[in-house]
Design a protein around this nucleic acid. Structure first.
Length: 344
DNA sequence: TCTGGGGTCCTAGGACCC
DNA sequence: TCTGGGGTCCTAGGACCC
């Protein structure tokens, strides 16, 4: 086995949140299902978290306002987001994947990388799909590559429910002429900056001057963009439990907050909620950050270091209020957030 | 029809110290 | 009076991802 080639498989669940909801409500199968917020499409300021493929056919997609989604697809079933249910379903899937005995790196609720050694990754991918379906009732796509980047993009081509391989032999033919933001790790902003350097496609980025990219994007990010374009680097999967670096709680209020006392009250609630999350475990808080977003979407974050660290919820709450005092708020407040940075 | 919530990593300037 | 480097911490913000 040790002399068989190493592969990365990326397992990506299909329409995960909607699929979990359909699994426990079989009568919804085949219907447009939209998960988001409290499941009430008349409520403002809530967005689609996941749309089933039937709903996507009407142009509904994640991030869209629920009020927009109900206009595009009035017959859809709208459901509240239920993170406990998704946590549980995710754990079922990851346990099924670990059952294969290969290293597993969990990537969010609905994605994972596997690191097998095999001469036949397609057969293994097929077994994975069957096992996940049998044990959890959920379907997934599997991407195959030598790196995370290739496996991740391969899974994209495999969706929904398929298997696709993106390796050294077909990376350039498949990806070379695509825009740079087709890559995992390059979004719209970097793609636009690259365009200003006359770099439009993956193939052009591969041949770009590393010095030019370093000058534009920094000493780490610049060269990394070229690596991404080449298909990424081979590196060990991280299979251990993730140590969180921060925990946050944010809320967009259905009606803007006007009164100072109201803003402070809401901030206290957020601070206490996120403190409660963190203090259940053994973490020490070393920084408290507060974000304010006004009705016009102007958004700023300020923070305060706690050099010795604390686990005292009162101190955290008061630190949040002190940070709030450093803002000059003259507009109605749409969103507040509290983030706690943790000692690593 | 205005645009959620929860994360990670990187960059850059200024303070401060040696 | 004018000047060097190196290092770390703090803070704000940008960008990406699920």
């Amino acid at each position: 086995v040790a002399d068989e080639p190493a592969w990365i498989l990326h397992v990506d669940l299909d329409q995960f949140l909607a699929a979990v909801e359909v699994r426990r409500r079989p009568q919804l199968r085949g219907q447009p299902v939209i998960v988001g917020g409290q499941g009430d499409p008349t409520q403002r300021r809530q967005v689609v978290q996941c749309a089933s493929y039937e709903a996507r056919a009407y142009g509904v997609h994640a991030g869209m306002a629920l009020t927009m989604a109900v206009r595009k697809c009035p017959q859809a079933v709208f459901l509240a987001s239920d993170s406990d249910a998704y946590d549980g379903a995710s754990k079922e899937v990851m346990d099924a994947l670990r059952g294969f005995g290969w290293p597993v790196e969990v990537w969010g609720w609905d994605e994972a990388f596997l690191g097998p050694r095999t001469n036949d990754p397609e057969s293994l991918a097929g077994e994975i799909k069957e096992t996940v379906a049998a044990k959890t009732g959920l379907s997934c796509a599997v991407g195959i590559g030598e790196t995370r980047q290739r496996a991740k993009l391969a899974a994209h081509f495999a969706k929904p429910g398929g298997i696709y391989r993106l390796d050294a032999s077909n990376w350039l033919p498949v990806m070379g002429e695509r825009p740079t933001d087709a890559l995992w790790g390059i979004g719209s902003r970097i793609a636009r900056s690259l365009t200003e350097l006359d770099l439009h496609t993956v193939a052009e980025l591969i041949d770009a001057d590393p010095e030019v990219l370093a000058a534009r994007f920094g000493p780490v990010n610049g060269p990394r963009l070229i690596e991404i374009a080449r298909g990424g680097t081979e590196s060990e999967l991280e299979t251990g439990p993730r140590e969180p670096k921060s925990r946050s709680r944010q809320h967009t209020y259905p009606e803007d907050l006007i009164e100072r006392a109201d803003i402070e009250d809401r901030l206290r609630v957020l601070a206490d909620e996120v403190s409660g999350d963190v203090l259940k475990s053994d973490y020490t808080i070393i920084r408290v950050a507060v974000t304010v977003r006004t009705a016009s979407f102007w958004t700023q974050t300020r923070s305060r270091s706690i050099p010795l660290g604390t686990r005292d919820p009162t101190e955290i709450r008061e630190a949040a209020l002190l940070v709030l005092d450093r803002f000059t708020i003259t507009r109605p407040v749409r969103l507040l957030a509290v983030r706690l940075d943790l000692r690593t």
